[in-house]
Structure formats: structure tokens, C-alpha cells
């Protein structure tokens, strides 16, 4: 196994826990806003690490670029969605937890 593959795999395994953390937050946090927070942060880091890891492991630049594109798309999607949901939730009068 080459060094590149080792590094890639390590990145992948480093990324997975973040996704679990996201779910944990989704389940345990008390309201929409905090859940949004948990999800946006952890999922994006997790997905990023997995994408880069797999890209590195494959050793192909084209594939790496495609994987990075996937990551960027998910980043954009979740960032916009998070903003939209939070704004609309506020507008609809959902009070954040603790206020």
C-alpha cells in the first residue's frame, strides 16, 4: 500500500466521525437553530475530509477535482439552506431556545 493510499484512508476515517456528530446534534439539540448549527458544521467538515481523502487515495487528479466539486456543491447547498431556514424560522416567530 502506497503512502498516498494511507493518507487518503486516514483522511476518510477522520471525516466519518464528524458526520456522526452531526446526527448526534440533530437528535440531541433542543431546537431548529442549534440543530442547524450542528449539522452545517460537522457535515461539511466530514464530507470534505472524505472527499479529499478518497481523491488522494485514487491518485487521479480528474477524480480529485470532481470530488472537490461535490464537496463545494454540498457546502453551497447547506450554507444557503441553513441561512434560509434560519431566516424563515425567525420570520415565522419560532423563538430560539433559551430566550
Amino acid at each position: 500500500m502506497s503512502a498516498l493510499e494511507w493518507i487518503g484512508s486516514l483522511l476518510v476515517f477522520a471525516g466519518i466521525p464528524f458526520i456522526f456528530l452531526g446526527t448526534l446534534g440533530l437528535l440531541r439539540f433542543p431546537d431548529v437553530y442549534t440543530r442547524l448549527h450542528a449539522l452545517a458544521k460537522s457535515d461539511n467538515v466530514g464530507l470534505g475530509l472524505v472527499c479529499i481523502g478518497l481523491g488522494v487515495q485514487s491518485g487521479s487528479v480528474a477524480l480529485l477535482l470532481k470530488l472537490v466539486l461535490i464537496w463545494v456543491l454540498m457546502l453551497i447547498a447547506s450554507a444557503t439552506a441553513a441561512g434560509l431556514i434560519a431566516r424563515t424560522a425567525l420570520a415565522r416567530g419560532l423563538r430560539p431556545w433559551g430566550t
Binding site: G15, I16, G22, L36, L47, V50, C51, I70, M74, S78
Partner: peptide, 15 residues
């Protein structure tokens, strides 16, 4: 939100 989270996980699974 949950559906969105599933999207992320599904992408990783497919990859």
C-alpha cells in the same frame, strides 16, 4: 434538516 443530513450521508455512501 434531517432529509438534508441524509443527503450528505448518502453522498458519502455512494462515494
Amino acid at each position: 434538516l434531517a432529509a438534508e443530513m441524509f443527503g450528505t450521508s448518502a453522498v458519502v455512501i455512494v462515494l
